[in-house]
Design a protein around this nucleic acid. Structure first.
Length: 492
RNA sequence: GGGUCGGUGGUCUAGUUUGGUAUGAUUCUUGGUUCGGAUCCAAGGGAUCGGGCGUUCAAAUCGCCUCCGGCCCA
């Protein structure tokens, strides 16, 4: 055995993410134990610990930001009576086709009124808001709930990206004026940026959606899109200016300072953590598996003890001490003292995406050193054991900013200005996003968007609100004076 | 919603053309061996072949229905 021409017999995970993204996604869900599609009900999947722990960390970060901005948590029932669900006409049209209904109980019992599994909770919450809000002194009311919602999607479902039950936070806010609503929308978009980009390392572009693509029943929808490895965009948190439409439908009124009754103004904001998790693994993952940000990884550090028979006790005890010390310092640490060989453990935890690995062997103990490995760059360094905590703190930050920087690099040269439908198609075929002057995002512009969709497969994502852009010239489709610049992308 | 391919121990898979005792690997359990990039050996466990109905002496295999999944298109 020369040992030189031996190939590794197999790998725990090795798939070309860039050229084979659908396979990559399905396999990583299975191998890393993120979602188990064997449950047997379309669009419903159990989430094992590895994905759920990560999503919980993501929820915690989001809730911390919301609470810092004066939103209070609450929880409503899962079911909504049909009469409430159908109070706002456009909302009905938008959501009822996707509703799961409960109508029976026990053996042959019939409910007097059908109950909907909430597809979103406006129609559950606002009837209660109508009771809870009496005076301008009750406003603003800023509340949110962390829950799952149910939508009978007709499109093909995928774990995390499109499920029929998904995990999210929905924030429902009530104000005395429309100006406050606009300020809340801005705050929500800042929250999105802080949470999704600064904490999860996922860059986004923020759009005001077109009138034909807004939240059913609202005035305007604002949404963040990110870019997936296959060149398609994915909608992440969206926030909605509901105007006073729902207040009128659900009778949410308050007495103002002049003792006059007024309808309230509302917003809602719905970051779907399970979907953001899908984006997170897709954006950061590489051919060897997951690369989880330090801030959200269930285990931030895995300690791998390395020993021959006679060293076992010493090395194990030493490793346990390191684990305890790191835990005391507030890190999430796992010590892998299973029977597998070190090489197996390296591959396994790299596939799982643990950001930092500490290797401890007899040599290191003797020299007061440790081997520190970072998953994002697959690089090792040998450090003094006394510097361990300090190094981990700085390395954790470095990993997260490196993951973000790498993701942002995919946005460079992403946008191509197009002046014709064939130019749009060209751009999309290259995996780019097309930017065009457009007649209008009011309903009158829909035929132009439909034509683009038919001929290029691209969807009109709306107008950017995180950059200032002024149109010149005419609509790329109909030739009327352009009033807006819109972006066209293939999407999920 | 349209099209298409698929479903066989926990996982991956052979077998389906030509109906007749279901193949191999891996995982798992036990014992030993090994441990700085997937140790090796031995023994053991594990499947009413997605579900239902039909054809047949006989169905993983043929037919119909259905559920679930992958991919492509709208």
């Amino acid at each position: 055995m020369s040992g030189k021409d031996e190939q590794p017999r197999s790998t725990i995970f090795e798939i070309d993410k860039t050229n084979n993204f659908p396979d990559w996604f399905g396999e990583i869900c299975r191998v890393a134990e993120l979602a188990d599609i064997r449950y047997g009900v379309k669009g419903f999947t159990p989430f094992p610990p590895w994905s759920f722990m990560t999503m919980n960390n993501m929820f915690d970060i989001l809730e911390e930001v919301l609470q810092r901005k004066d939103h209070l948590p609450m929880l409503f029932p899962t079911v909504i009576p049909e009469s409430n669900l159908t109070k706002e006409a456009q909302h009905v049209e938008g959501f009822v086709p996707q509703v799961f209904w409960i109508q029976d109980t026990g053996e042959g019992g019939k409910l007097e009124e059908r109950l909907a599994l909430r597809p979103t909770s406006e129609t559950a919450i606002y009837p209660m808001y109508s009771l809870w809000i009496r005076s301008w002194r009750d406003l603003p009311m800023k509340r949110y709930q962390r829950c799952s919602v149910f939508r009978s999607e007709v499109k093909s479902t995928r774990p995390f990206l499109r499920g029929r039950e998904f995990l999210w936070i929905e924030s429902h806010n009530v104000f005395a004026t429309h100006d406050e609503v606009k300020a809340q929308v801005k705050e929500d978009l800042e929250t999105t940026k802080e949470v999704v980009t600064d904490n999860f390392g996922i860059p986004v572009m923020v759009f005001r959606r077109t009138q034909w693509d807004k939240f059913p029943g609202g005035l305007n929808t604002y949404a963040a899109d990110t870019l997936m490895p296959d060149g398609k965009v994915l909608q992440l948190p969206s926030t909605h200016d509901l105007g006073d439409n729902f207040a009128r439908a659900f009778d949410v009124k308050f007495l103002n300072e002049n003792n006059e009754i007024e309808y309230a103004w509302q917003t809602c904001y719905g970051p779907a953590i399970s979907r953001i998790f899908g984006a997170l693994i897709s954006v950061h993952g590489d051919n060897k598996g997951l690369r989880l940000p330090f801030k959200v990884a269930p285990y931030q550090i895995v300690v791998i003890p390395i020993y021959k028979g006679k060293d076992a006790d010493t090395v194990l005890e030493y490793s346990k001490n390191i684990q305890n010390n790191l835990r005391k310092a507030g890190f999430r640490v796992y010590l892998d003292n299973s029977d597998n060989t070190p090489g197996w453990k390296y591959n396994y935890w790299e596939m799982k995406g643990v950001p930092i690995r500490v290797e401890i062997g007899p040599r290191d103990i003797k020299d007061n050193k440790a081997v520190l490995f970072r998953r994002d760059k697959m690089k090792r360094e040998i450090i003094d054991i006394k510097d361990l905590k300090k190094k981990i703190v700085s390395l954790g930050k470095e990993i997260d900013s490196h993951l973000l920087a790498e993701a942002e690099s995919k946005f460079v040269d992403l946008i191509i200005d197009a002046d014709s439908i064939s130019a749009i198609e060209d751009a999309l075929d290259k995996g780019k996003i097309a930017r065009i002057p457009f007649c209008t995002t009011e309903m009158e512009g829909k035929p132009c968007a439909d034509e683009i969709k038919d001929r290029t497969g691209g969807e009109t994502r709306g107008t950017r609100i995180d950059v200032d852009e002024k149109p010149t010239g005419v609509c790329t489709v109909c030739g009327k004076i352009a009033t807006e610049i819109v972006y066209i992308a293939r999407s999920y």
